[in-house]
Design a protein around this nucleic acid. Sequence first.
DNA 1: GCAGCTCCGATTGTGCACAAAATTATGCGC
DNA 2: GCGCATAATTTTGTGCACAATCGGAGCTGC
Lengths: 250, 250
Amino acid sequence: MTDSPKKIQAKAKRDTAQASLTLRPAGLNASEVMLFQRLVDSIAERRLAPGAKLLEDELAATFEVSRERVRRILLVASQYRIVKLEPNKGASVARPSQKDRKEAFALRMLLEQQVVRLLASVPVARQRVIVGELREHIDEERAALANGDRKLQIRLSGEFHLKMALQTGNSLLTQMLQEAVTFLSLALAAHAYHQNLDCSIGEHTQLLDAIAAGDVQRADGLLVDHLGHLEDDMAYNISVAQDDEKTLDI
Amino acid sequence: MTDSPKKIQAKAKRDTAQASLTLRPAGLNASEVMLFQRLVDSIAERRLAPGAKLLEDELAATFEVSRERVRRILLVASQYRIVKLEPNKGASVARPSQKDRKEAFALRMLLEQQVVRLLASVPVARQRVIVGELREHIDEERAALANGDRKLQIRLSGEFHLKMALQTGNSLLTQMLQEAVTFLSLALAAHAYHQNLDCSIGEHTQLLDAIAAGDVQRADGLLVDHLGHLEDDMAYNISVAQDDEKTLDI
DNA sequence: GCAGCTCCGATTGTGCACAAAATTATGCGC
DNA sequence: GCGCATAATTTTGTGCACAATCGGAGCTGC
């Protein structure tokens, strides 16, 4: 017995929504996209440390695909600033400089402020739906906290921001934010685990309240604070580590 | 007789600055980057129309490179949304939808507002240098107008915005703007020639004046107007043409 | 006449073999 | 033991041949 068309469609929609929360480069076929995401995950979760050499044969062996496919994926990943590709020297996991980190953070802030502004000024009827869905997400976050599932908590905490962007209906904006967030996860990963996740839930809730009230100013302020906390954590953790590269300030 | 080290360094710096005004994807070697830019130019100048099929063999022949190299370039171009790459169906010049156009425009506006804000709040000493360089650029624009060199005029008019971004010293912001502008040039190209370039010079001057005066509010307003003119021209020209795709307004 | 089927040419996808380059290892003179 | 040239090995780059796939032309039967 097969699923009804309606059921299948619903599943497809769910899959799409799920998929939008991860980087999804064009020009790759389905299986290549999966491999790409595995690579990105490996980097984001620091199984592959910044600066690590990425040998084509090695990756081909572990992923069980041909070297050509690995090369394609590395090329795409280099466009997202996740891996550094040097001619005749091969690929390595990118090591974002302090300047890169700051710039990525500033970009994320800029994009998210726009997201919040857009959501706060959406017609009330539609806004109610949006806010409802986002509150459900926060419920999930709360459940993860209650269950002590820290890993899930971290993922949900990040996805909240992407879900907000999705709700604006602006796919370009969403994708840019996705890129910035992914790049930042590379720049932070090891440190991000220190962030205070409990307070994250509270801040998400407050932010939604401000949006629902149409209070752009307050929402903006809350967002700046919320992301600011992240940046502070980062700055602290970075200063503990050694400085990798000299930053070329213009 | 060879050049002095200082001279060489100066040249290198000039080249870099020049290069930053065009899309410069990572992960490609020097010759591939040149081919990539030729492709982008061909598309931006509408020698290759939106929707045009890009046969690998054909491109390989005209560019006099192997098919493999063409494939790499097409893959990279697809990341920048310039070409559409469909599995087993090959590449074609992207045909941005109305929604794509709007989103790209909104993104460009957001990024440039940030640029202007940053420039307006830079320390005066440094700001004087920046404004000076940008005024020189406007002089070039004026010269092109006087000479009746419309093509140069168009190029300079666009480059003014990228030079502003460069002066912020934020390379990520600059690159994002570069991407947005390139994508928009694909979305507009044929129509952009209609834009009023004389008034462009005046608007650039006013914008600089406001920045030099540190008047963020005024600079922002001028920018919105300036880019708004572009969008209006676009919207008008688009409405004359037939609608290509259905736009999925959420 | 046309719906559907099959076959054929054109085009893209993929693995492989070899070339080029870089990195590491080796040996030699001092 | 050290610096340096050189050989050996590893790793990346590239072209090519063939496989898979697509689109359309032409045929067949109703």
